[in-house]
Write a protein that binds this DNA or RNA. Structure first.
Lengths: 226, 226
DNA sequence: ACCGGTCGGTGACATTGTTACCGAAACCGT
DNA sequence: ACGGTTTCGGTAACAATGTCACCGACCGGT
């Protein structure tokens, strides 16, 4: 058995972009990080909780959302398995009053990298830097996309897209109107109205807490032609 | 005359966070960067133009905005003198289709740091890393703020805030209704309506291309009590 | 069965976005 | 100065979205 066995078999393989790291760097990562497992619903980071760690997700998803003063919420993006919560690395060093919070949407298994180790690796490894900045780019692109949508897209188009996204290939979406409203940063009544219209057209069927997509093609088509 | 004279007298002093760099690092920065001066209106970066440099602004401001498919625009944030265009560093390595573009709003003097030097300094200097990540945090916070506003704030409040921001203490704002619409990501007609209402209340006076703020207190008060 | 909380429905209304115009003011070349 | 062009702002009708107040149906527990 070679010494590097541990590193090779470790969680590193979950992350495209980390595999390319030097073996030595990989070993540092594995040795100095900590495995955590949190149940669904846990607030992973948020206002007040200064996150002293970079989180790399092995399993599950984390929903990052923002709450306005008036109490309304909007989902900014999701961090999936194989991705990292890089934005916290920036937020923790400067402006602590970032109103965004991260919530474990499912049971989550992850690896925590302490800030000091993160900093050391950014210094030591070009591949790690690429990994970090790519992750940043991904998130920032997501934010641009969110801004574009809420500023310029029609509600019906956004809802249709979101339903398809949340269905993930299945034919039903388990979500209350209120949850969908949060996803899109709008009010529950607006969602109810839109879903009624979709139902009237035969695109969906509703029951308490779930929505059946009966005409996926029509929903997808909304974006194209209008 | 000491060797470090050049570094000490250089543009480094414009940037809080760079002064703390080791002298050696400062000298690298000064030696390997390039001074540029561009006239107002120049597109500094944008879709298609892969920015191979980090920009540090010495004078002027750069407006970063996004254009939707439908042609409407929204201003995301501004980069002022003493700040940097860090987001481009991320965008240039990963997703090139970022729809955001940067426009010189005034004549701009800046320093360009090539990507390779940027990378080298991130590796070498802890202070430089702090500088970079702080700049990121600042921008990301700005984006969160934009999202919060367009999703949850009333138009009149946003317009009042924007007028005050653009006045910068003066009592007139030089901007067309169309420009203000772009600032807030809305339509020109909406701005015209709101300004008429402001005028009716005696808060502003309008003439072609300029708006006089005649009751700043009232405009500021809009946010507080509603 | 009762109770409290969640979920969705509804109607009236306010705000914002869209469309399609219009005339006035500034700009420009001759 | 003149006429043509562009930019700027105004207007009205309408569509879409957000807000408010309320309601009954359903769900879980006891």
């Amino acid at each position: 058995m070679r010494m590097s066995q541990a590193a090779e078999d470790s969680w590193i393989g979950h992350f495209r972009g980390l595999e390319r790291l030097d073996r030595e760097v990989q070993e540092t990562l594995v040795a100095r990080s900590r495995y955590v497992s949190v149940p669904a619903g846990t607030v992973v980071f948020g206002p007040g909780k200064s996150p002293e760690n970079l989180l790399l997700l092995l399993e599950g998803t984390v929903r990052v959302q923002q709450t306005s003063e008036s109490g309304r919420e909007i989902v900014l993006y999701r961090v999936h398995a194989g991705e990292s919560c890089v934005l916290t690395t920036a937020c923790l060093l400067a402006y602590e009053n970032h109103a965004a919070e991260g919530v474990a949407e499912t049971d989550v298994k992850a690896v925590m990298i302490p800030r000091t180790v993160f900093d050391e690796l950014v210094a030591r490894s070009e591949s790690f830097r690429t990994f970090v900045f790519s992750a940043y780019a991904r998130r920032i692109t997501d934010l641009f996309h969110v801004i574009d949508e809420i500023a310029f897209q029609r509600m019906d188009v956004r809802l249709a897209q979101k339903l398809i996204e949340l269905s993930r290939g299945a034919d039903t979406v388990k979500a209350t109107h209120a949850v969908l409203a949060t996803e899109l940063g709008t009010a529950r009544e607006v969602i109810s109205r839109q879903l009624q219209e979709f139902q009237r057209r035969g695109w969906v069927e509703q029951s308490r807490g779930t929505i059946r997509l009966t005409d996926r093609a029509a929903l997808e088509g909304l974006g194209q032609d209008g």
